[in-house]
Amino acid sequence: MPPETPPRIFAPDRRAAVRRRMLNLQQAPDAPRYLLDDMIEDVVERLAFLRHRPQRALLVGDIHGSLQAALEATGAQVTTVEPALGFQEEAPYPFSGFDLVASLGTLDTVNDLPGALIHCRQALEPGGLFIASFPAAGSLPVLRSVMLAADADRPAARIHPLVDVRAGAQLLQRTGFTDPVADARHLAVAFRSFGREIADLRAQGLTNVLADAGPPLGKAALERAIDAFSAASKDGRTVERFEILTLSGWRR
């Protein structure tokens, strides 16, 4: 029986374009990077806790080179790749033999997540560690409610489906990782306006890459979105929630 074709939830070309725009926006000195910074800090802390000092590391999505610099400071040889620049996460990697593969904020928008995890594991040498962090289920509750208000009686697909902790743990087991761990944490971020939140999402590569994306918001819908966002504010700020899922496991 031929293998099942994964559903086409995300548009790869649209995904690459959104990440290329993110790379350009991140050149600004005041570009928001709090999600990526949190993921990198978490990876560094996990490596210290596990006393795992990699000699050869593969980093996916380390767009500023911050994690690369931290690992190289310990003597690691680091290879970095970026999906926006042609790296294919849903195909076998062209290299292997790493004792660390870390993916930062990319695996939430691949169509074949089990396949992508298998490729990560195969890139590891025996005894190598895999760590991935990305936005998870429960993220952007305010934006979800705002979009429903904006679309009124004709809701459209605008927010990505996301993986939760339980599904993440099951995926690690399914794809052959040893000692799999899935956990989530949240970040609360306050925004002064609807436009500011959208700008932050755009600058961090978190806008819509669905294959069947909804139509653009019209003027009236945009006004409803702004009003709904303002109605959720307190003291002039609306607090949004980001859930970050981290998956880790070893190759034995």
Rank of each mutant, 00 (worst) to 15 (best):
A220S: 15
I226W: 04
E125F: 00
E197N: 03
I198M: 12
L172K: 07
T246Y: 12
D164R: 01
L162W: 05
W250L: 13
A152K: 05
T178K: 06
G249N: 12
D212H: 12
I131M: 08
A221Q: 15
L129R: 05
F134I: 04
F191R: 07
A132T: 02
V239E: 14
G249C: 12
D183A: 10
R241P: 13
P161E: 04
T207E: 15
G138A: 02
R158L: 00
P141E: 01
G214D: 10
G127L: 11
R237Y: 12
T238P: 05
A150F: 09
T178S: 09
A231L: 14
T246C: 15
V165H: 07
A157T: 02
D153A: 09
Q173S: 10
R224E: 12
D153E: 11
D235K: 15
L187M: 05
E125W: 00
R154S: 10
V165E: 10
G168L: 00
A136D: 04
G214W: 00
D227H: 14
I131R: 02
V146F: 03
A228P: 09
R251Q: 15
T246E: 13
A228F: 08
K219N: 14
N208I: 11
Q170L: 14
R202D: 13
G249E: 13
A149I: 03
R241D: 08
D179P: 01
L247H: 12
L206V: 10
A225F: 07
D151K: 06
E243K: 04
V142S: 04
M147E: 06
R224S: 04
G218H: 11
S248M: 13
D183F: 09
L148P: 01
Q170V: 09
A231D: 15
A225I: 07
A132L: 09
T207R: 11
P216T: 00
R192G: 13
V163P: 06
S233N: 13
D153L: 08
T178E: 12
A137H: 11
T175M: 02
D179Y: 02
Q204G: 08
D164H: 04
A213L: 04
Q204V: 01
L222N: 14
A211Q: 15
D153F: 02
A221R: 14
A136K: 05
A167N: 08
A182E: 07
G218D: 15
R121Q: 11
H186P: 00
E240L: 11
E240V: 14
L148A: 05
P126Q: 08
L140S: 02
Q204I: 03
L148V: 04
V163F: 07
N208W: 02
S145I: 01
M147K: 01
